[in-house]
Structures are given as structure tokens and as C-alpha cells.
Amino acid sequence: MKSFLDISKIDVTFPTPKGEFTALKEVDLQIQKGEFVSLIGHSGCGKSTVLNVIAGLVQAKNGGVILNQREVNEPGPERAVVFQNHSLLPWLTAYQNVELAVKQVFGKSKSPAETKEWIEHNLKLVYMDHAMQKRPDEMSGGMKQRIGIARALAMQPEVLLMDEPFGALDALTRAHLQDSLMEIQDELKNTVVMITHDVDEAVLLSDRIVMMTNGPAATVGEILDVDLPRPRDRLALANDPHYNHLRSEVLTFLYEKQAKVQPVKAKKKPSVVSTNSHVA
């Protein structure tokens, strides 16, 4: 079975004054269309590098990434990235930030009216239609991140890459955004790869959790299927034993097993949990 996004045995090295540093070693991961996958691991384990390889911002030394039967070798809007620090352009308003992306991706294929409608639609999706004319420095961190998500969604990417999107936010704001994200995901059924270091976030949002070993030469440690039914409710799940079991699995990996590099070994059969998974 061919997967939608195939990360096959990638090695990533960086040159340093002391010689080559091997960041990733034989990272291998297959993701199906519509699947929400989280990458979790301690800081410095190379989670972001994996994401950057998928995004095309970092080139793998060996191995490669195939998305929808095309090899990835440079960045592109079909792999939209939501960056950790929102990375909105501060000289543009919320609307203009999204507009830049929309015009670049859809160009002449949308009429001005359609463009405008599409931008507004995406901003509405993240509940930011009231702040369209605000500049980033007039917005809170959560608002900025919402715009960042809207910008990424507006590109209609084949895969949405999120690099610790809520990492810099306070707990309450983070919860709000997670809920919004789930809501959007229910509607759009995007393929998502998300980096996180938050165990609850990973379990709450993901279909699968990819646990990374510590670097150097980090690789995929274990993969956990999160077979909780959707829509998920954070309050209800708080007392759900299965939820807590999944949570403790991740915690065990992170705090007991993480010291050793282990070969790729799936905890359960790597099947697709998501109901709407098809090979394109």
C-alpha cells in the first residue's frame, strides 16, 4: 500500500566546526491522507528537523520524502507550515498576510472577489474576521497564531505542517486554539504533521503519535495509535481510562525509555485509524 506522505529512511547531517553532526538517522514514517500525526520528543531530538525536511527547508543526506507520489526537494505551498513563532509579516495586516499567501498560491485562478471571499473565509474559520485590519503588533500571541493557521489553511495544502504551533502560548489560550483546530480538522480533514512537546496536546489531537528518540542520530522510537473516537471533548476525556492509558504510554516512553536509541518498533499494528483514510 502506498502512503500519501512517505518519509523513507532519511538521514540528516549538519556541518559543524568539529565535523559532521548527525541529527537524524534513518527516520522512516508513512502517513495516510487525512491523518493527524504528532511528533513528540525531548527538545533537541530533531522533531523540527523532520518537519523541515518534509517542508523542503532542510535537505536529507540520504533517503527522501514523497508526497502524493512526488518527491519533495524544495519548499512549496502544498506543504504549508505553521511556524512556532507565528512568523506573520509585521508590516502587513492580518488580511494582507493571508492575502500574500492566497495570491501567490491561487494567482489568477481566483477573481479578486473570490480571493477576498476566500481570505475572509479562512480568517472566519479561525475566528479572526474581526481582526482583519490589525497588524501583528496589535494582536495577542493567540490571535497571531490563529492568523498563522489561517494563512496556512488558505493555501489549501496537501499536508499542513505545524511546528509547535501552540508552544509559546499560555495554557488557556492553547486549549482554545486546540479546540478550534479540532473543529477545523473535523470539517476540512487535512493531513497534518504537528510537532509538539505537550503530551496532552498530542493525545487530544492526533490519530497517531510518533515518539522520537533522543539525538544525536535521533530516529522514530515508537508509534502510538490514538484510537479515541472523534469528536473529542477535553473535559470528557480527562476521566477516560483509555485516554489516560495512552497518555501514560507516551509519558513512559519519554521519561523511561527515551535515553536509549531503539529500533523502529510499532507498539501496535501500524494501521490507519482515521475513518476517512484513502490512498489518493
Binding site: G76, V81, M155
Partner: peptide, 22 residues
């Protein structure tokens, strides 16, 4: 800011447009 540079890359802005917009 490298994030902004990456935004430009992800959007595949042409060199000229990259200078103009970012």
C-alpha cells in the same frame, strides 16, 4: 528573521517578489 525567509520559501516567491514582499 529566518521565519520570514521561510515564509517566502514556502510560498515559492520569485526572487524579485521575495525582495519586494519580504
Amino acid at each position: 528573521n529566518s521565519d520570514w525567509v521561510n515564509v517566502g520559501k514556502v510560498l515559492r516567491l520569485s526572487p524579485l517578489k521575495n525582495i519586494q514582499k519580504i
